Simulated scan of single mutants.
Amino acid sequence: MDTFALIVTIGVALGFTYTNGFHDSANAIATSVSTRALTPRAALAMAAVMNLAGAFLGSGVAHTVSKGLIETPEGSKGMGILFAALIGAIVWNLVTWYFGLPSSSSHALFGGMVGAALAGGTEVIWSGVLDKVVIPMFLSPVVGLVAGYLVMCAIMWIFRRANPHKAKRGFRIAQTVSAAGMALGHGLQDAQKTMGIVVMALVIGDVQGADDPIPVWVKIACALMLSLGTYAGGWRIMRTLGRKIIELDPPQGFAAETTGASIMFVTAFIFKAPISTTHVITSAIMGVGATKRVNAVRWGVAKNIVLGWFITMPAAGLVAACSFWIVNLAFL
């Protein structure tokens, strides 16, 4: 039963990674597709490859997820907690994908972990949740908004005397690089989050120790599932990011992607904080758009997106808690 539970939990974790891929693929490519720098299929293929590469760049975020948010639960109850946390995250991903709302898969996972841990009587490391999740959740969009605005202002000043048509053509080409950077950062951040969950499952199943390195097969499996999900595409969310917030041109798309990618690399390598790629790129798009004029940004759409950010963790946590109670009644 323990081996079966371990296999099922790892399978559900990889399923979550797949939903993360198609849910968040828009983060990396929506701006490039909306400015016609890349065709949708070419953008998705590029994003899938870069997600795969990004997953192997580090392990700091994975260790934060596996050790820094909840105490590692033990036995069959512990496996049930992980299973319920993943179900909560997957359900929220599917709901927000259906409505085209670019919510955070990361915070759905963290909310699921906290909700399932509370329901299962496992200790939540609130200091870790505050430092690694809550503070970055509020800080990263502010940084993305301000940095996006400043980067776009710098671009406008540097190219103020350039021929507009030539500049747009050049930035359309440059967007292939900035979009690749976004996808690389997405792989670096989001594949590692699932790696952390799989490592927790392996520790609970007594397959490896808590301080052992992440097995290579775990990295490969998580990276592949994220890439497959990315290639499946997230067209509903892509429309929201690429067109509903603001109509982007190539310089704006380049500025937003460069800002988002830079923030993700800094937080992953320096702070080892699992930030939301969705929060960063969405706020960067808003900041970039505000340089045109403040009312160029469709703030009504932006308000709905931000509202979705705030309800993601509690909503996923509630689903996860209900899932744990069902699993507990049925199997534990």
Rank of each mutant, 00 (worst) to 15 (best):
T240W: 05
N295V: 05
A330H: 07
V199C: 14
V33H: 06
M79V: 03
A5W: 05
G100I: 12
D24H: 05
L202E: 09
I135G: 08
T122Y: 13
I197P: 07
R169H: 02
C322Y: 07
N51W: 07
D190T: 11
S25Q: 14
L150C: 02
S127E: 11
L228G: 15
W299R: 03
V198A: 02
D212K: 03
W309G: 13
S276I: 04
F159T: 08
K166H: 00
I155L: 13
L248M: 08
I270C: 04
I275D: 11
L38G: 10
A221W: 14
G78W: 04
E247G: 10
R169P: 01
A37R: 10
E123M: 05
M156K: 06
G185W: 11
M182V: 07
G196L: 08
I270F: 13
A284L: 13
L332S: 01
C322T: 14
A201V: 09
N163V: 01
I214D: 08
F22V: 15
F271C: 04
S105Y: 05
S25P: 12
G75R: 00
M200N: 07
N163E: 00
T9F: 12
L130Q: 13
D190Y: 03
A5D: 12
I7P: 07
T17D: 10
W325V: 07
V95N: 08
A179M: 14
A85Y: 03
I158C: 00
V218S: 11
A183G: 03
F265I: 12
S104G: 04
P274V: 10
V198H: 02
A28Y: 03
G115S: 12
V297M: 00
L44D: 08
S34V: 10
R293Q: 15
A30K: 04
F265C: 09
G196N: 09
L52H: 14
V203K: 08
V288D: 14
I173Y: 03
N304M: 05
R36D: 11
S59W: 09
R239V: 15
V177S: 11
S127T: 15
A180D: 04
T282F: 15
Y98F: 08
I214M: 14
G287L: 10
D2N: 15
M152S: 01
I7K: 01
R160L: 06
W217C: 06
I237A: 01
K193Y: 02
I125Q: 11
L332C: 05
Q252M: 15
G80W: 00
I173Q: 05
I281W: 01
L224Y: 01
K244Y: 12
S262M: 06
I204E: 09
S66D: 09
I281N: 05
M238H: 02
V203I: 15
L57A: 15
R36L: 12
W157A: 12
L6V: 01
H279N: 03
V151T: 03
N295H: 05
S127P: 06
A183L: 00
P40Q: 04
T96D: 11
W299L: 08
P40R: 06
S276N: 10
A45R: 00
V124K: 14
L241H: 05
A315R: 08
S76R: 06
G21S: 15
T122I: 08
T258Y: 11
D212W: 09
T194D: 03
W97F: 00
G100N: 14
H63R: 06
L94G: 10
A316N: 04
F83L: 08
